[in-house]
Amino acid sequence: IFERDNHRCIVCGKYVDDSHKFHHEPCGQEKSDIISGGVVLCNNCHYARHNTDKLKLIKTKCEEYLRNLYG
């Protein structure tokens, strides 16, 4: 997932090293490591995905990103 996303947050483009856990989309997707269900998010965007008014915007961005890759 990190290689696929070039170690970049798919929302803001910030570099993210692979010591971070990728984000499961949809949230909690059985916590599987399936490549088509994960995206790289930086800490700030990951926090915003779960805890701010940007939740829906980031959720949509994650869904569209994965849909463009995997249909």
Rank of each mutant, 00 (worst) to 15 (best):
D18S: 09
D18H: 15
I10L: 04
K56C: 06
E25T: 02
G13H: 09
D18R: 05
T60R: 10
E3L: 14
R49G: 07
H46S: 09
R49E: 12
N44Y: 08
T60Y: 10
P26V: 05
Y70N: 00
V16H: 00
V40T: 13
C42E: 14
L57P: 04
H20D: 15
C27K: 08
H46N: 15
P26K: 03
S32N: 14
E64F: 09
C45P: 11
C42K: 04
H23K: 05
L55R: 10
R4K: 13
S36V: 06
L41T: 05
V16D: 00
G37Q: 09
H7K: 09
I35P: 04
A48Y: 06
H23N: 06
K59F: 08
G37F: 11
F2K: 05
D17T: 15
G28Q: 09
E3K: 07
K61V: 02
N43G: 08
V39K: 01
I34L: 12
R8P: 05
C42D: 06
L55Y: 04
I34M: 15
I10H: 00
C9S: 08
V39C: 09
S32A: 13
V39H: 02
N51Q: 15
L41F: 03
E3W: 15
K61M: 03
G71W: 01
R67V: 07
C45I: 12
T52E: 15
F2Y: 12
K59I: 01
I10R: 01
N6H: 11
K21T: 03
G28Y: 06
N43L: 11
E64K: 10
Q29V: 13
G71I: 02
I10A: 07
H7V: 08
K31M: 13
I10Y: 00
H7N: 15
P26Q: 04
G38C: 07
K31Q: 10
C62R: 00
S36E: 14
G37V: 14
K54M: 11
K59Y: 04
D5V: 08
H24G: 02
L41Q: 03
Y47W: 09
R8V: 11
N44A: 15
